[in-house]
Design a binder for these strands. Structure first.
Lengths: 407, 407
DNA sequence: CAAGCTTTTGTGGATTTCCACAAAAGCTAT
DNA sequence: ATAGCTTTTGTGGAAATCCACAAAAGCTTG
């Protein structure tokens, strides 16, 4: 019944047996992604696997990708196999992974490369049996897995994805990893123009290690992104300090190393380390909004200064349900279409310019009186009171949400 | 085993039997709330039951309350008993109700008055058995329940609560009920100062029937509220027409009949009758926001002009999860507390006044230059760019959400 | 194309805003 | 109490806004 119910001389023999049964290459790692065993059959092997075997551990950048994609979180949460679709940036092909459990603790992982065909139920079942069998084999190995040995970057990813326990545990783990704990922090992201090469990694490391503006206890690189935990020295001017550091970092990368950074963003400054995940999400929101509104948010880096765009994901979700229909905006659009006018563009620019007549007129290349006339028509056609803040806000948000939809 | 497995001479005998077993008064109605049978034992009877028995039907206002409270929707959806807590405005005591089903259709209802003690599991079980037994007795009765006989008000409540089928069915039902179908409509609510008495009902009916401004195909009265379906003649000026009608209705009620209406509100104008429930909800939202922001929304009646307050329930919900923390606002509050200043009030008034310096200064009774100075301080302390619409919006919404929380 | 409409641009003057500077008033801590 | 700070109010001039009115240009429609 159970094809793994025999005695295995070594873990390699076990890996070969699994590989034979599943007809694909097998890799077994411990909980810290160090290689334990791998099958030797002649099969296609993707670059990520090759590198893992050569260095006897999974490359950092592969692990980073797996965290970001949510693969490792899933593996740490359930005993079910997880399918990983190709992550070509790190040379990872289609994979199936499963975690090896003992007493509610993950001992390690089995990785299978998915060959050409989709897996059958039978194959998934076999993999689960293999994971059960591996449990006994691994626990005999007396694998040293002190927390000290966990690598810093993976720890950072755990914090970023919210896979953490109590604040106290976090602090303790920081001490063990020799990571200084600061009273305030924020998570920042730099979006690079291209994938970050090894050489650039060294340059980043250099800049981060030598900066005096604030402390950077943790950082990690993921494909085109550099993610940093920044710790400003004071709470009051924390945000301004981070802002300054971000600008100078981007300038230095460009001027010294000719590496262009598309944009930087960071979340709120928090005190409790369990909020790292939140700050990270906020930073991601900033990036998302900067992509959707490159012009408006060109100079914005912090979540705090995202202004109303903080609400946009939430509002957009609701709008998709057909809520927040704006009759005024509809009428203006209709008028524009029928009479070849630019009322919507006019009011949007006007609000962009904070209701400043001169600035708006200049931006639109029209006479200020033309603008005044248009505004009068807008309030007539749309039945809008343009001296009412609440109505202006509604109209502004609805227009921007419209734009957000098209991106 | 089953206490109802015997032969009953009449439905009255059945009602008496149920009453005996449950030790409480029992009333049996058909699907249109007409009285079919009732128990005659000497028990306490609430005013609603007395009126039902005397008129051989449940009073309109009781039915309206039951729809609004969601009792009838529940009864029409499941075969489980529903507990109704006292609705004293309509003389309804604590009740237990259950619907009588046959072939996925509701034939009628059994109502039990809950006497002093809470019901036991045993009692609920008995009631369910009674409902099953009533099914056979009722279906023998060949109860005439043509849709024509369904009363108009109940039909309106079905529309309001979204218990409707296809638009086509709705139109057909309208024809059967002799209700004219108009191309556009909106749902409006008038909130009266006191419960609406019979005399006032007649006055309302008179005014609604004689108005020429727009058509009112359906209306219903519920405790302190009058709910109307209004049909403006044109789509373009529909909202303005409704607005005018609302004002004149309120004026006339006050001047002719000395009846004060606290406020009126109406939802969006739609074309499809399935959207009546949505328009009704929007009208309710307007009332809610008018209660929370009586000053700002004093002159607002339509959902369309609710402006940004349309978002508030949604945003507030998210804010309760700890999102949207506004550091700028926090700093201003803190500064106010430490230095006995009014920065928050100042900026809120300034934004209320649409960034109009003169108006704000007059409202706050300060010199315009004082305002300018305060604004400069606000932008310094809060690190806010007051000429950035997005930041202003964020700050404004956060301040108003703060107020919303305290109401 | 001519009439009637909307839209753009122009002019001028009353009003408001913006800004710099300064005096006065108020608060706080030594 | 006094020095040092913040806050309020005042003055005046440049700039911007607002408003009414009007000419010109553009478009739609019969």
């Amino acid at each position: 019944m159970n094809p793994f119910a025999t005695h295995f001389e070594s873990l390699e023999e076990f890996a070969d047996r699994v590989s034979e049964l599943l007809q694909c290459p097998i890799t077994i790692e411990d909980a810290n992604h160090r290689l334990i065993a791998y099958s030797g059959h002649e099969h296609y092997t993707d670059p990520a696997r090759t590198a893992t075997i050569i260095h006897r551990r999974v490359p950092e950048r592969v692990i980073n990708s797996l965290w970001r994609e949510g693969v490792i979180p899933k593996l740490l949460q359930s005993e079910e196999p997880v399918r990983v679709t190709e992550i070509s940036e790190v040379g990872l092909g289609n994979r199936i992974a499963i975690s090896i459990w003992k007493n509610k603790e993950v001992l390690g992982f089995i990785w299978a490369i998915e060959m050409n065909e989709q897996w059958t139920e039978q194959q998934f079942h076999l993999l689960k049996q293999a994971a059960k069998a591996a449990k006994n084999l691994l626990s005999q190995l007396q694998i040293r897995k002190h927390k000290k040995e966990e690598r810093i970057q993976e720890f950072f990813w755990k914090l970023l994805t919210g896979h953490v326990s109590s604040p106290h545990d976090i602090v303790e783990q920081c001490h063990q990893l020799n990571v200084h704990v600061y009273p305030f922090f924020s998570v920042g992201i730099f979006q690079f123009q291209q994938q970050i090469q090894t050489q650039v990694e060294r340059q980043i490391d250099y800049l981060l290690k030598t900066t005096q503006q604030l402390a950077i206890p943790l950082y990690t690189i993921d494909h085109q992104r550099l993610i940093v935990l920044v710790a400003p020295s004071s709470n009051v001017y924390g945000e301004a300090n981070i802002e300054r550091f971000f600008r100078s970092f981007m300038t230095q990368m460009r001027e010294r190393f000719r590496v262009d950074i598309l944009m930087g963003a960071f979340g709120n400054v928090y005190e409790c380390y369990t909020k790292i995940a939140k700050s990270y999400e906020e930073a991601q929101t900033v990036l998302k909004m900067k992509r959707a509104f490159p012009h408006q948010l060109a100079n914005i880096q912090s979540y705090q200064h995202l202004g109303m765009y903080q609400f946009f994901d939430l509002l957009f979700e609701q709008k998709r349900h057909g809520d927040f229909h704006n009759a005024a905006l509809e009428k203006l659009k209709q008028y524009d279409a029928q009479h070849h006018t630019n009322l919507v563009e006019t009011i949007e620019t006007y609000l962009d310019c904070d209701s400043n007549v001169n600035e708006t007129a200049k931006t639109l290349n029209i006479h200020p009186n033309t603008l005044a006339y248009r505004l009068k028509r807008i309030s007539e056609i749309g039945n809008i009171d343009l001296s009412n803040m609440s109505e202006k806000v509604k109209l502004y948000i609805d227009m921007k949400l419209d734009k957000y939809r098209t991106t």
